[in-house]
Design a protein around this nucleic acid. Structure first.
Lengths: 146, 146
DNA sequence: CAAGCACTTTACGTTAACGTAAACCTCGTC
DNA sequence: GACGAGGTTTACGTTAACGTAAAGTGCTTG
């Protein structure tokens, strides 16, 4: 029982199974990246779209994956880090205890990382505000004395 | 809680101007980077230590610069971005109005960036917590059925 | 004085994350 | 049937941010 593509999650809403799909170009436009980037993410194991002949077909799940990936990137995570979490998440349903515990550790790591980032943001904001103040003052001086 | 080295900024007030200095090795140790990194930042215009003969001498100002640089890095900024702000800040005292306004724009950009990061962190935390929950559940199931 | 650090410059190497270009399908449309 | 708009693979190029190695300088310590 490796994988059941059918009805997996709790999102088994009453919706009819008419999944919306995307071409690579559409997805690229939505997230303002190039198709190259999306193919690259696939090559790196972050996406696994199905095919229709030769063409890649992206479902909602893939779109969400991409969204999460890009969010991770904006936060400075490497693709390797992102993949690690994503793959563990996928392996979760039939994962053994060791893997699950490893996943929990990983998550704790990420949490710590985010916490530090929050602090960094706080400090950087203070500095930016400070520089802003000074700049405005100097500017006022300049404009007050023609 | 990354343990800060003793000397803080606020205790420098009434002290005579006997600036403490650092060698490149000391600085590297403090911030847990290699000397190579510090030299590279200098080459990229982010630091400008004075010299004593051939050796680089770092003052408090340089240390702060490095600290800010590394903080920027942790937040995913490129060295180029960091340098831009740093250089404008340096040029402030005798900057003309146009430069100052440009600086204010830059700061606004950074602020927006940080705001988005905050939102990204918020969302990512939610997801992490969610994955955590699921993992714990699966784990409990596993351990409940030997 | 030899040895050992800590520092220096110079220069080539490496990795991640794509960009760019070439050469090829495949489909609808003019 | 020519063609343009999308898609595909393959492969080499590029950039940022350092790592690493070689060869030299200067101090101080056994």
């Amino acid at each position: 029982m490796t994988r059941m593509p059918q009805a997996t999650e709790s999102n088994a809403d009453a919706l009819p199974r008419q999944q919306r799909t995307y071409s690579i170009g559409e997805l690229a436009q939505i997230f303002e990246v190039t198709p190259r980037t999306i193919r690259f993410y696939e090559q790196e194991g972050l996406l696994a779209p199905s095919r229709q002949g030769q063409k890649r077909i992206y479902r909602e799940k893939d779109r969400v994956r991409l969204k999460l990936t890009l969010r991770g990137k904006r936060l400075g995570f490497s693709l390797a880090e992102i993949r690690e979490v994503v793959m563990m998440y996928d392996a979760m349903p039939d994962g053994n205890a060791r893997q699950l515990k490893r996943l929990l550790e990983l998550l704790e790591d990420k949490r710590a990382n985010l916490a530090r980032q929050l602090e960094d943001i706080r400090l950087m904001r203070l500095e930016i505000d400070d520089v802003d103040q000074r700049a405005r003052e100097v500017l006022r001086q300049l404009e007050d004395t023609p």
